[in-house]
Design a protein around this nucleic acid. Structure first.
Length: 585
DNA sequence: AGTAGAATGAGAGACTTA
DNA sequence: TAAGTCTCTCATTCTACT
């Protein structure tokens, strides 16, 4: 430890939340949609001529233009050029929107409306990005209107916001206005008049718009303006060394931080994902999770294997303590039997990240043969090949010239789980590796959660989302924090069985409720559960990393990817719980 | 049907060198 | 300082085999 803590200072993060900047990025970029599909300029409408008419019509009506206006403009201009159609519609509607008419408009659209229009708008936005003249040709207010429409708001909504906030208002102010109106309306619809809790989702739609900006920003990276964009948009820098607010084995520690008002519990929450996500992902996650700075930690400071992860939580950070005994932190300590066979030319003392795939027996055989071709120490090129493969697949030495992948029980041990935690119950070896590879490093998580022990001597109620094999539950149990009621949501049946089995084996006194799908966990169900035991003390979850992880060559689509977009369900549920608990107070 | 083996790079940070 | 090199990454999918 060189005492260089600069990497941990707050200026190591760039929390540039300049709305205008992001909106600019948004405006001039291609569009992607939450399911991960990029929408190309051609658009669906033009790709299916048979339904072209109705689609173009529906497309603009769906954006909020009146049927009459759309019909008229299509009639006059044809439908070949969606860009010029939109321009005409925007110009006409801006002129047409009298204040009286706007006052009557209801600031009402559902999230599906937003998504729908976002989807539908793609071709237009893409084209706009290629045609700066169009943007320049409209007036300043038309530009703001266009920006809002591009972001998925209907023309009516955008017009009303512009009218109410005044022509000099910034786009950010306009978005704030729309968000506030939506929230007020949503609360009216959802809550009884006498009970309207102060709900943190006041900023939800705004945050959502940030998310959309992020998608666009990312797409832009792939374009010709990459360099400019990189310069303009400072990304989060990972701290070096990656020890978060502190780890037990290093002297450095930050013990105080100021959380944003909206971030403060109850409930406490704890979110986890891969540290090395595509650029912009952690900024988005952080913005959704109440602007809390992520704590990036490499579990190599806790055990013998690296695991670079980011954690966002609202837990206190002073008086943390580690699980005892402290785990072995070198390969030789963790796997003493390997020491005998470890060649001098293999200088590894830490394993790389324990992933879901593992080295094959055939590979280890090839390595053995490659080494056995030589007497004594193999030549440098062979050494290089062997070391390369060993690092790539986390192979360890188990005999003379013989390497092997870690056994599942060794992975369990390295990750802080009890031996045979994932064994049995009909799970295959491959699936054990997969479940373990997707799991928490228990010692790391427990260190962060340890502050709860004094606060909840009688135990906690836990909501565990994306539970996997129960890393959070195991961490809390090993900390000696009683688990009173645990609602565990996990899609994989074998994983649910593993947690259930562990629950029974450890003679838990509490109540375990397991559910299978976060997307089906709605407000009613949550309220019902929370009413039965009085709310959650802690909400833990590491949402899927499939579309964020560097190992994924096929679908590293970012936070809008098929699985990784489930992060938004984590946020949704967290926000719901906050609302319900606020209501109950 | 279930499992293991193998092929499939990009992206980004760390580090080195000119 | 800039460019080149090295290193690592909670994965996916197809094929062959039992």
């Amino acid at each position: 430890m060189d005492g260089d803590n600069s990497g941990l200072e707050s200026d190591n993060y760039d929390w540039n939340t300049e709305d205008e900047l992001e909106i600019e990025n948004f405006q001039s970029s291609d569009l992607a949609v939450p399911n991960g599909d990029a929408i190309t300029g051609s658009g669906e409408a033009s790709s299916s001529p048979s339904s072209s008419n109705s689609k173009m019509f529906d497309h603009f009506v769906g954006m909020g233009f009146s049927e009459k206006l759309v019909s008229k403009v299509i009639q006059e201009n044809g439908e070949e050029n969606a860009d010029s159609l939109l321009e005409t519609l925007l110009t006409l509607s801006a002129v047409d929107s009298s204040p009286e008419k706007q006052q009557q408009n209801d600031l009402d659209y559902s999230s599906s409306d937003l998504e729908g229009s976002l989807l539908d708008d793609c071709s237009d936005i893409d084209s706009f990005s290629d045609n700066e003249e169009i943007t320049k040709s409209v007036s300043e207010n038309d530009g703001k209107l266009l920006t809002l429409v591009n972001m998925g708001y209907t023309v009516d909504v955008a017009s009303v916001a512009l009218e109410r906030c005044g022509m000099n208002s910034s786009v950010d102010e306009l978005i704030d206005f729309i968000c506030a109106a939506q929230t007020a309306k949503a609360e009216d619809a959802l809550m009884a008049p006498e009970e309207k809790p102060r709900c943190s989702n006041l900023t939800k739609q705004k945050k959502r718009s940030y998310y959309e900006c992020e998608i666009l920003g990312k797409k832009k990276l792939k374009g010709s303006e990459k360099k400019v964009f990189d310069e303009d948009e400072e990304m989060i820098h990972l701290p070096k060394p990656m020890v978060g607010f502190g780890v037990p084995t290093e002297s450095f520690a930050i013990t105080h931080r100021k959380l944003p008002e909206s971030a403060i519990g109850p409930p406490y929450f704890y979110y986890e994902n891969v540290a090395l996500a595509p650029k912009g992902v952690w900024q988005t996650i952080s913005r959704f999770l109440y602007d809390i700075e992520p704590e990036f930690v490499d579990s190599k400071y806790f055990c013998a294997a690296a695991r670079k992860r980011g954690y966002i939580h609202n837990l206190p950070i002073q008086n943390r303590f580690p699980l005892l005994p402290l785990p072995a932190r070198t390969i030789h300590e963790a796997l003493p039997l390997t020491r005998k066979w470890w060649p001098e030319w293999d200088h590894r003392n830490k394993l790389n990240c324990l992933q879901t795939a593992y080295g094959s027996a055939k590979l280890t055989e090839r390595i053995r043969k490659a080494i056995e071709n030589y007497e004594g120490e193999p030549p440098p090129h062979v050494q290089k090949y062997v070391i390369e493969q060993c690092r790539k697949w986390n192979l360890v030495w188990v005999g003379r010239n013989k390497v092997a992948p870690l056994e599942p029980d060794e992975v369990e041990m390295l990750l802080g789980f009890p031996r045979n935690h994932t064994r049995g119950g009909g799970i295959s070896r491959t699936d054990r590796y997969k479940s373990l590879g997707n799991s928490f490093q228990v010692d790391t998580v427990a260190y962060h959660l340890s502050v709860l022990k004094d606060m909840f001597p009688k135990g906690i109620n836990l909501l565990s989302l994306f539970s996997g094999i129960g890393g959070a539950e195991v961490a809390l149990y090993r900390l000696g924090i009683p688990l009173k009621n645990v609602v565990s949501v996990e899609k994989s049946e074998v994983n649910r069985n593993i947690v259930r089995c562990w629950w029974e084996q450890t003679n838990q006194k509490g109540n375990l409720i397991d559910l299978d799908d976060v997307q089906r966990l709605n407000g009613d169900r949550l309220e019902q559960l929370m009413n039965s035991f009085g709310g959650f003390d802690l909400i833990v979850g590491g949402s899927p990393c499939n579309n964020l992880a560097g190992s994924n060559r096929v679908s590293r689509d970012g936070l809008e990817g098929k699985e990784s977009s489930l992060f938004f369900d984590y946020f949704r549920i967290l926000d719901l719980v906050k609302c319900i608990m606020a209501k109950g107070q």
